[in-house]
């Protein structure tokens, strides 16, 4: 008998207010509510979080590392986006 398996969910946890949600890992659950409850038990057994997001893994679109060259290349020659690109005399303070 083949019944459907529980889908995979990606788990994001905010460890405390003021910090962003961070990817903690993944788990299987029948639905979003169960994913939240399982995430509580799997990833926050020691008060690691104050907020949990769950996203079904299939909804995540990821860039392909094989295309990293053309994807990230445009930023490589733009040194003028960094403060150190600009010449300022030493006697100028607070800049």
């Amino acid at each position: 008998m083949s019944t459907k398996n529980w889908p995979l969910w990606e788990i994001f946890v905010r460890s405390k207010n003021g910090l962003e949600h961070r990817h903690f890992g993944s788990l299987h659950a029948a639905d979003a509510d169960m994913a939240l409850e399982n995430a509580r038990d799997v990833y926050t057994r020691r008060n690691e979080g104050v907020s949990i997001w769950v996203v079904e893994s299939k909804h995540i679109t990821a860039s392909n590392p094989e295309n990293n060259g053309e994807l990230f290349e445009p930023a490589q020659d733009k040194v003028y986006r960094h403060p150190t690109f600009y010449d300022v005399p030493d006697e100028v303070k607070h800049m």
């Binding site: 019944t3 459907k4 398996n5 529980w6 029948a30 639905d31 169960m34």
Partner: peptide
């Protein structure tokens, strides 16, 4: 239990 949870999730959806 696994099957029932999946069936319930589908029903809710």
């Amino acid at each position: 239990v696994r099957d029932a949870a999946m069936a319930y999730a589908e029903k809710k959806q």
